[in-house]
Design a binder for these strands. Structure first.
Lengths: 261, 261
DNA sequence: AAGTGGTCTAGACCACTTT
DNA sequence: AAGTGGTCTAGACCACTTC
């Protein structure tokens, strides 16, 4: 018998792939396991948003796998916008503190001209107990503490969005109107920097409604103007819902943009 | 000097990668070139929707590249929904004749219950000359022949969508009300099978509007009911726009669903 | 058993950035 | 020159489907 060929697969890190034929019931490929390990480091804050993560070679050594396997894991994380690759520089943890990230969740675009981020005016910020519907969407118990935020957003001084947010009180303890007001830019940047909670994906339900008297007043429009109503639930690592946002969008000079692939 | 090592890169198919240092201005990686060649075969109909394409090994031989390079090309085509991989069976050309594809472009979901495809009732089908706005969006000249379609779609007998379509007359020559009516299922299936035109992506602009008298009558609702207004431009291979669709969606028992990643 | 896509490895070289 | 990600190759073996 000749010696083992150089490419035989006998990786100790993989709990499967053994010589025994029976595949374990919880089988997952090595690169998925590596991906999970990297995600853990992202979640735990070992590498913070905006920072450089270890190089592929370094991670391959750490996890005792080939660079190609690390590469495939990072490819998927990059596709999910958890990290960003930059040739020659390295791989960086994604952050909401970038123009690029600003319009990933805000899909309202001006009919004419280049998109830019709106100004916020906060109407109300308070702690309260979660109503049943909010609790259900945020995976909380009815009556759990939540932080409620209501604000109006304007483009070039024109009020266009009125939205209400509910955030788990535990995760966002210490969030006040002052901190929101002094912070410029998207709230997700604040959440990421000050509360260590990064939104990584969201689901949205959209309908058309008529403006009620209160919302019409905030948007300085007549009642019964048609508005887009969006209900958005945002998730952080581990598919944990951490924000419910209900927005009303005035679509006279703006539209909701979507790409269907 | 030792002989050339086994892994030196000297592939004749690549127009770049030569020994000369100067990179050509039109550089693109090999797998992108392979991807373009495969896309050409898809576009030309060499492999038709639903059919099996040659195996990775076969394509690697044909193009004189390694299987890994073909693999990376097909990976991207699969990510763009142009093909579908099935382990053990092969790689198939995507088709709109599948339940899976039906909801890729129709994002209106029932608030309760499982999604299903609506019934169509055609109001009008005619040839006409493209108005300026339609011509612009379809990359035609104002006055070029287009086919105009107007229909109402119902879920469980409840009229919910009224939409108007404009299609380039040249591409869809011979499309009549009869053919539309006898065809069950999504129009994109018909377009693909009968006209050899496959929609591969679309952009959509969404607003809220009030129902006018005519549309209210078609949807059997009162005038001024708020509706979602969608303007969608669909593209076939080569990013060529081949459909303009303007839809009004009743969102009382349905909502527009979106995933933000 | 044979064929397909899916995973994993090892190594070479290229393109880009920084030192 | 050194380090990073990006491309390409060659080969092994696994999981799944079909014959």
């Amino acid at each position: 018998m000749s010696s083992t060929p150089p490419n035989s697969n006998n990786n100790p890190a993989a709990a499967n792939a053994g010589g025994a034929g029976g595949s374990s019931p919880t089988f997952s490929p090595l690169y998925q396991q590596i991906k999970a390990l990297i995600t853990q480091s992202l979640q735990s804050g070992e590498w913070k948003p905006g920072e450089l993560i270890p190089s592929e070679v370094e991670l391959a050594n750490r996890f005792k796998v080939s660079q190609g396997t690390v590469r495939k894991a990072i490819d998927e994380l990059a596709a999910e916008n958890l990290v960003m690759r930059k040739q020659g520089k390295g791989t960086f943890v994604s952050t909401h503190h970038e123009a690029r990230a600003h319009f990933r969740f805000l899909r309202l675009m001006p009919d004419e001209g280049v998109p830019h981020y709106p100004e916020s005016k906060f109407i109300e910020v308070k702690r309260m107990r979660a109503p049943a519907d909010v609790a259900r969407l945020l995976d909380l118990k009815s009556g759990d503490a939540v932080i409620f935020v209501k604000r109006v957003q304007s483009f070039d001084g024109v009020p266009t969005i009125v939205e209400e947010l509910w955030l788990p009180g535990l995760t966002f303890k210490g969030l006040t109107a002052e901190r929101l007001e002094e912070y410029k830019g998207p709230m997700y940047g604040l959440f990421e920097s000050e509360f260590g909670t990064r939104m990584i994906r969201a689901t949205e339900k959209i309908r058309a409604v008529c403006a009620g008297a209160d919302d019409a007043a905030l948007l300085k429009i007549t009642a019964n103007t048609p508005l887009l109503a969006s209900e958005r639930v945002s998730f952080t690592y581990g598919d944990k819902p951490v924000e419910l946002r209900r927005g009303l969008y005035l679509t006279e000079r703006h539209h909701y943009h979507n790409e269907l692939n």
